[in-house]
């Protein structure tokens, strides 16, 4: 493997240059240098996160992942609450966002008039360009009051006996964070799903319509069948986006290191903990534990993202769904 890498570099640097003029050599060198920056960043992220999380790794070992105590006062750090919060918020976001996005994409791509479709295209474009800090701000000042005065009391009244809907109705918490995340990934998944839908050859759709199928019959019996692997991949990509989101969640999740079944309870995610504590972390071990959290987040997110990409590539959706 190592031999091969060296060999490749030799190739890059010598064999290719033999017959080239100076300007082309410069172009090539610049391009290759830029490519090396990309590899430098990947290697740098992995090695520096490992290096700086070493103190925490040494101190807590594997129990870091399974301990639910996070206490800078007593210098006890465990990632379980953050991992739980990340998973829980992402799960809620996926449950809300994925069906809505797929439905909306079906409407925009298949049902609607071209003018309406273009209109929604612009809407989705704008929504996906709005940064997370603004979603967070909106969540804190607009969504949280609605949650505390309307949604949470309603849910509690309807199914308050369930453990999921217990606790104080202050509007913050895992459910609110999940909803904000859902709103944030909807434009992304709509776009990605539309790209998959648009890959269906129009002749196939024409053939279905010429057999006398209605639009929904064509979608249900043909398109979804044709596209479901691709849509699965885009859903996974959406999930990986939700996992890595930090700032918007930090606004509304309440930021407490606890695990509670209740969706109204405050919690934290890996991203929100980093955003909240990193700058103020005075203690070296605290900082190291936070960097280890970052490493965990990197592994989870890149893992899901890579699985999604490999899957999309396997089913031949190569290009830029991301």
């Amino acid at each position: 493997m190592r031999y091969k890498t060296v060999h490749t570099m030799n190739n890059l640097l010598t064999a290719h240059f033999r017959h080239l003029s100076t300007s082309e050599k410069i172009l090539r060198i610049l391009c290759i240098a830029s490519v090396f920056i990309i590899f430098f960043v990947i290697c740098g992220i992995i090695s520096s996160l490992l290096y700086y999380s070493a103190p925490a790794l040494k101190q807590f070992g594997l129990s870091f992942l399974f301990s639910r105590s996070w206490n800078p006062g007593t210098i006890q750090f465990g990632a379980l609450t953050s991992i739980y919060g990340t998973m829980a918020t992402t799960l809620i976001a996926s449950i809300i966002a994925l069906p809505i996005s797929i439905m909306a994409a079906l409407y925009i791509s298949e049902f609607s008039h071209p003018v309406i479709s273009r209109f929604f295209g612009t809407v989705i474009e704008i929504l996906s360009a709005i940064p997370s800090v603004i979603y967070g701000l909106w969540g804190l000042f607009v969504l949280v009051p609605v949650m505390s005065s309307l949604v949470q009391p309603l849910l509690q009244a309807l199914c308050g006996s369930l453990p999921f809907f217990k606790g104080a109705l202050n509007g913050l918490g895992i459910l609110t964070a999940g909803i904000i995340l859902a709103i944030m990934i909807i434009p992304f998944t709509i776009n990605a799903t539309r790209q998959i839908l648009d890959k269906v050859p129009s002749e196939i759709k024409d053939a279905s319509y010429s057999l006398g199928a209605t639009q929904w019959e064509t979608i249900h019996a043909l398109l979804l069948r044709f596209c479901s692997p691709g849509i699965l991949g885009t859903c996974l990509l959406g999930v990986s986006k939700a996992l890595g989101e930090a700032v918007a969640v930090a606004f509304v999740i309440g930021n407490k290191h606890i695990i509670s079944l209740s969706l109204f309870s405050s919690g934290n995610t890996i991203g929100s903990t980093l955003v909240n504590e990193f700058v103020e972390a005075p203690d070296k071990l605290h900082r190291s534990a936070l960097i280890e959290l970052g490493l965990v987040l990197f592994i989870i997110t890149v893992g899901v993202h890579t699985i999604a990409r490999l899957w999309l590539r396997k089913i031949n959706v190569v290009s830029g769904v991301e």
Binding site: P201, E203, I204, A207, S210, R225, F226
Partner: peptide, 10 residues
Amino acid sequence: MIFRQPTPFP
């Protein structure tokens, strides 16, 4: 209707 390109469904 039969099209120019065969259009079997997947």
